[in-house]
Amino acid sequence: MRRAAFGLFGLLGIVGLLPQAHAAGPSDYSILIISRERLEVATSCEIGVYINDQLAGRLFQEQSTSFNLPPGELDVRLRYLPGQVPGCQPGIENQRSTRLQLAAGQINKYRIAVDQNGLTLIRAGLGY
């Protein structure tokens, strides 16, 4: 019996010496919502959402997407994507992006619209 107790205490002592793995504390992030809910873009072509030059989402009419992102600056670019619908092959298009500043805990909502320079993001109310 003593031998088992000493073995158990020895095992607990060894486990106590091992480095502990701790989960990271609650990470702060920002929420970015991009919607194509309104019919401001009069095409049935799919629109690609690029975050820091990486394709992050695809939107058809009446859709929205959201991203949990770390706070800081990021570039968002929109472009038409080739698809199954005729006429959706992108030609020469403006490669400008929108620089957004995200703060921790903040919810940012933008809608896609078209202006004289092509696709653009317009800040939208949350509507909650």
Results as ranks from 00 to 15, higher is better:
L32A: 02
R96V: 05
Y128H: 11
Q101V: 14
D115Y: 11
T120M: 08
C45Y: 04
G125A: 13
N108P: 02
E93M: 11
D53Q: 12
V49W: 00
P90C: 13
L102Y: 07
I112K: 05
E40K: 12
I122L: 15
L119E: 01
L102G: 00
G87F: 09
Q106G: 12
L81W: 01
Q89T: 12
L39I: 11
R77D: 07
V114F: 09
F60P: 00
L81T: 02
A124W: 10
Q84D: 14
C45R: 03
L78M: 12
L121H: 05
G25N: 10
V85D: 09
S64G: 14
A113S: 11
G72D: 05
E73K: 12
R123N: 09
Q106P: 03
S35N: 15
A24K: 07
L102S: 00
Q84I: 11
I51D: 00
P70N: 08
Q106F: 08
S66H: 15
Q89L: 15
L59P: 03
S35F: 04
L121V: 00
R123E: 15
G118T: 04
L102R: 04
A42D: 12
L126C: 01
P86K: 09
N68K: 13
P82I: 07
Y110V: 00
Y80K: 08
Y50G: 03
V41E: 09
V76K: 06
G57V: 03
S64R: 12
I107N: 03
T98H: 14
G118D: 02
L39S: 14
G72K: 09
L39V: 10
D53L: 06
E40Y: 11
I51H: 02
A56N: 02
V41I: 06
T120V: 14
L32C: 07
L39Y: 14
A124E: 15
T43F: 01
I122Y: 08
I34K: 00
A24I: 09
E37G: 07
T43Y: 08
A104L: 10
N117Q: 15
R38A: 11
R58F: 07
S35V: 05
I47G: 03
Y80D: 00
T65L: 14
G105A: 07
T43H: 12
V114H: 02
L59H: 08
S27E: 15
F60C: 02
V85S: 10
R38K: 12
Y50I: 01
I122C: 00
E46A: 13
R77C: 05
A104N: 10
L121Q: 02
G105Q: 07
A124Y: 09
I33P: 03
A124G: 04
T65Y: 08
V41Q: 06
G72V: 01
L121F: 01
D28R: 13
G87W: 11
R77E: 08
S64F: 14
I31T: 12
L81M: 04
G91N: 02
Q106N: 13
G25A: 15
Q89Y: 09
I92C: 00
Q54A: 13
A103N: 15
A56C: 04
L121D: 01
F60T: 10
V76H: 04
G105F: 10
A113L: 08
G91V: 03
L69T: 04
